[in-house]
Design a protein around this nucleic acid. Structure first.
Lengths: 132, 132
DNA sequence: AACCATCTACGAAGTCCTTCGTTATGCAGA
DNA sequence: TCTGCATAACGAAGGACTTCGTAGATGGTT
C-alpha cells in the first residue's frame, strides 16, 4: 500500500487560495509563474506572494508538487467538483441548518438563472428524487 | 433624512460571527449573556469572548446595539434570508463561476434532500422560470 | 455604607492570512 | 569561468480572528 496522505480533512481554502485553485483547475498542473500570470490578469498579486501561498497550500495538503526541470509543477489535490461539494456542505451546515431547499432558494434568488439552466435543474431533480 | 449607515457593503461574517448571528436570528435581539448561554450549549466559548466578538461585529456593522437597563441588546442588522443571499452570491462568484446550476447540483449531491424538499424546489422552479 | 453579582471595556497573546524584500540556488550564455 | 536571469526559499511585517485576564461601572443586598 502506498502510504496514505494524512487522513485529516483538508482545511477549507481561503478566498486567495481558492483563486489559485481555480487557475489549477482550469489549466491543469502548472508552475508558479503560470499561476501568477493568470492571476495577474485580474488582480495585482506579486510573484513571491503566489509562491508563498502555493508553499503553504502544499503544507496544508491542498495542492501537490512535483519537480519539473529547475522549477516545480503544482496540482490541485481535490478536483473542482469535490472541492465545490465541500464548500457547499460547509455553507449548508453553517448558514442553512443543513436545508438544501433553503440554499437552492437563495441561489435562485441571487442570480437570475437562464431558462436553460432552470430546465437543467428540473431534469436534475427528476433524476434525483423521482418524478411526481 | 436619518443619516444613512455607511454605504460600504457589510463584510462577510466569519464562522464564529455566523454562529452568533444564528442565535440572534433565532431568538431575536438579546443580551450578551443570552447569546453566550445558547452558544455554550454546543461550543466552549467564554463570556468575554462572545462580548468581544459582538463589539467587533458592532464596529463592522454586522449587528446593532441599544441600551437596555444596565446592559445592551444586540440585534442582527441583516435578516437571515438577506445574509444567506449574500453568502450564496459570494460562493457562487468565487467557486462556481456564477453558475447557479452547478451550485444546485452540488447542493443536491451534498445532502440528501427529502422528497418534500425536492417537490418544494420543483414548485419554486415553476414560479421562477415558467413551467415548460 | 460595604459587599457581591453582573455587565462593559480594555488590552494583550496567539494564530492565521497576505504581502513582499531579500537571499540562495541552479542553469545558460559571453 | 564569470555573469546574469529565473526560480525557490526564508523571514518579517501588518492585519484579521479568537481567546481570555483584568479592570471599571452599576445595581441590588445585608
Amino acid at each position: 500500500m502506498p502510504p496514505k496522505p494524512p487522513a485529516k480533512p483538508l482545511p477549507r481554502p481561503t478566498d486567495g487560495e481558492l483563486a489559485i485553485l481555480r487557475v489549477l483547475w482550469s489549466i491543469g498542473p502548472c508552475t508558479v509563474r503560470q499561476v501568477h500570470e493568470v492571476l495577474h490578469a485580474g488582480r495585482e498579486t506579486g510573484y513571491t506572494t503566489v509562491l508563498k501561498m502555493l508553499q503553504i497550500m502544499t503544507e496544508k495538503g491542498l495542492v501537490t508538487r512535483e519537480e519539473e526541470g529547475r522549477g516545480h509543477l503544482y496540482q490541485a489535490r481535490l478536483g473542482e467538483a469535490q472541492a465545490q461539494k465541500h464548500l457547499v456542505t460547509d455553507l449548508l451546515d453553517k448558514a442553512f441548518q443543513g436545508s438544501a431547499l433553503k440554499l437552492v432558494m437563495s441561489a435562485l434568488q441571487s442570480k437570475k438563472a437562464s431558462a436553460a439552466e432552470l430546465e437543467a435543474i428540473r431534469r436534475l431533480l427528476d433524476e434525483h428524487g423521482g418524478k411526481p
